[in-house]
């Protein structure tokens, strides 16, 4: 039977089923189902239904499962002989002890000109490794040849090395969750990723004062969700149009944001009552009633106000018709 037909039959199957079929036949072995996206997790690689298996509170993934997982991914990639791979997603609990494997998969994705790389090594909060995987910038090609546009890292380390960080230059979007970030690393990323349009920081440890500065004209959307350790956020980004925040920071400083159109801020209840031990995390955005003065709009000198609406905080350009001035609001001036 022709290779096209075999490949077509395999395209109806899941990764796991197609590998099972291919390992049985010499002829099928190197037939590759036409797959532009590879998605590896407990289910696709090991055939384990995570919820059914770990619902009884036993959330630790055994050493044996981990070892089978990395071997399985290796074997699937070895069998993959397509020309291009659009996206590679790995969702499994792996720490830096498996860096040798993960580095190899990333090398593979670079050869396959992958545009979207999604590494989620948390799998479940309980089984999270203390030994976070270090994302290997040094593997990315230098200059403009990198095809990587979307990078999503969960429970990884993004260590700042100015020499290598410039290799992220092709990135348009960066999504970090449970990825500790210090100011110098943030600066390096912002100053070297010139094509950057979308940045999200979630559940990550951030510096006390987070400064989003940089010459990047392209950063349009910035989202900060429930990050730790941050007290003040300073934003100076010419192209920024949307800023979304969820957490407990009350001190925002908008320095140079001429294109900012949408700001959405919501606070988490426990922080409003100043009780860090309280476990309540329901959203509460009903306690601040005064509009907050953020600054002056550069073009018209109209006031930019942070106001409280039914769906959280928003920014309004100019004042209400009644024209009252906000009282006691802290002002960030420039």
């Amino acid at each position: 039977m022709s290779d096209d037909i075999l490949s077509f039959i395999l395209s109806f199957l899941s990764i796991r089923d197609s590998v099972k079929a291919r390992i049985l036949s010499r002829k099928w072995r190197y037939i590759c189902p036409f797959m532009l996206n590879l998605d590896f997790d407990l289910h696709t690689v090991l055939g384990i239904n995570y919820k059914a298996r770990y619902s009884n509170g036993d959330s630790d993934i055994s050493w044996e499962d981990k070892s089978n997982f990395v071997t399985g991914v290796d074997q699937i990639l070895e069998l993959h002989n397509g020309q291009k791979l659009l996206s590679l997603r790995i969702y499994f609990c792996l720490g830096n002890e498996y860096a040798g494997y993960v580095d190899r998969w990333i090398r593979f994705s670079i050869i396959m000109k992958t545009e979207k790389l999604d590494l989620d090594f948390s799998a479940s909060p309980e089984s999270q490794s203390n030994n976070l995987y270090d994302f290997p910038y040094q593997l990315l090609p230098q200059g403009d040849s990198s095809q990587l546009k979307y990078l999503c890292l969960k429970s990884c380390n993004l260590r700042s090395t100015p020499n290598h960080i410039s290799r992220l230059v092709s990135l348009k979007s960066l999504d970090l969750e449970h990825v500790p970030l210090n100011q110098s690393c943030a600066n390096n990323i912002l100053s070297s990723c010139l094509n950057f349009e979308w940045l999200r920081l979630k559940n990550s440890i951030l510096p006390e004062t987070l400064c989003i500065h940089g010459p990047s004209l392209h950063l349009k959307i910035l989202i900060v969700h429930e990050c730790y350790g941050v007290e003040k956020i300073e934003i100076s980004s010419i192209g920024l149009t949307t800023f979304e925040y969820m957490g407990k920071v009350k001190n925002f400083c908008f320095l140079d944001v001429p294109r900012l159109e949408k700001v959405h801020i919501s606070y988490i209840a426990k922080t409003l009552y100043g009780d860090d031990d309280e476990e309540v995390t329901s959203q509460n955005s009903g306690t601040v009633e005064e509009p907050k003065f953020l600054g002056l709009y550069p073009g018209s000198n109209e006031k930019i106000l942070l106001k409280n609406g039914p769906y959280g905080f928003y920014v309004q350009l100019g004042e209400d018709r009644k024209g009252y001035l906000p009282e006691g609001a802290s002002v960030s001036q420039y």
């Binding site: 039959i9 109806f12 199957l13 099972k20 049985l24």
Partner: peptide
Amino acid sequence: CQNVAEMIKGKSVHHIRIQFLGYQLFEI
């Protein structure tokens, strides 16, 4: 082709092997 895929789907390697052994469809 979808039908052949259904014959493979969710089966064990052992089962797939027995099912196709000796046929042209799938040179085991």
